[in-house]
């Protein structure tokens, strides 16, 4: 009796959990499927689950929509913003973790508070500044803004990773006569590399998916994939197969990154408040 009720409970949990998972994922699955349909198939009513797949929409996206231009912008902007953010935040996080002063804690909290400034609150001055300096619709403009908005998160994440490196190991190196530079490059870096990598990954994901600044500051020359996809909000979007193919290409790499770095994401996004 008790045994059957446990079985029943187990079966119910399995069905419920998988049902919800499939329902949540369904729009994404449908997008991927639609990308492999022909345009008439994509708008057939009722919708088809089974169809003869074609890659013509993908060919269209590459040939006519100038996909590589936008993809290159996304890659360059995200990568540059991440590299610069890491270059600025590694020394800062190192100092906070290993050379803490009386004001370190306040500095960290203040840095976090800058992240909480709503972007829309400074839309007007940033737009006018970008226009005045010729940075409107330029990669450099977005790189600078993304680097600045991610800086608090990268400093914070690196700080929590550096804090986990045992100080005794660094001191042992210093006893052996290592200079600070050697200590950092030969002792700390190998130990902290996984932490730096996942910090970089989080920054890449955030840059890739950022939409407020990319929609407002770019239109064509520097437009990343977010802006490219937004252009489908016109009647152009009614080419369902093409919209789906372009969208699939735009989200696929970052979704895979997200799957592999879930744990680090939790840490970075909650500022270490949830473990």
């Amino acid at each position: 009796m008790a045994r059957t009720s446990t079985h029943m409970r187990h079966a119910a949990i399995t069905v419920l959990a998988w049902g919800i998972a499939l329902w949540m994922f369904f729009p994404i699955l449908w997008m991927v499927l639609t990308g492999f349909k022909s345009e008439p198939d994509a708008i057939s009513t009722p919708p088809h689950f089974f169809f003869s797949p074609t890659i013509s929409s993908y060919q269209d996206v590459f040939a006519r929509e100038n996909y590589w231009h936008f993809a290159t912008n996304s890659v360059v902007i995200s990568a540059m913003a991440t590299v610069v953010a890491l270059l600025v935040s590694v020394p800062a996080a190192y100092a906070m973790a290993f050379l803490p002063g009386p004001r370190t804690r306040m500095t960290l909290l203040w840095m976090l508070s800058t992240r909480m400034l709503p972007s829309v609150g400074v839309l007007v001055p940033i737009y006018l500044l970008a226009r005045a300096t010729g940075l409107l619709d330029s990669r450099t403009g977005l790189i600078v803004i993304y680097m600045l908005t991610n800086l608090p998160i990268t400093v914070w994440m690196l700080y929590t990773f550096f804090r986990e490196v045992p100080v005794a190991i660094l001191e042992a190196g210093r006893m052996d006569g290592a200079t600070r530079w050697q200590e950092v490059t030969q002792v700390l870096m190998p130990l902290a590399l996984p932490g730096i990598a996942s910090t970089g990954l989080l920054s890449l994901i955030l840059c890739w998916n950022e939409t407020f600044w990319s929609l407002n500051l770019t239109s064509s020359i520097a437009a990343p994939l977010t802006t490219f996809i937004a252009s489908f909000s016109s009647p152009e979007g009614l080419f369902f197969a093409k919209l789906s193919a372009a969208s699939t290409l735009a989200v696929a790499p970052i979704m895979v990154f997200g799957w592999v770095s879930q744990k680090q994401l939790v840490r970075g996004l909650t500022f270490g408040a949830v473990k």
Binding site: A21, F25, M31, I254, M255
Partner: peptide, 29 residues
Amino acid sequence: FAGRGIARILVISPFFIMPTVAALLWKNL
């Protein structure tokens, strides 16, 4: 439950979809 790891990945996936794609996906498809 069976396949828990995969089911978890399916549930959290929408978080990694860029907002413009998410919105147009719902609006049109």
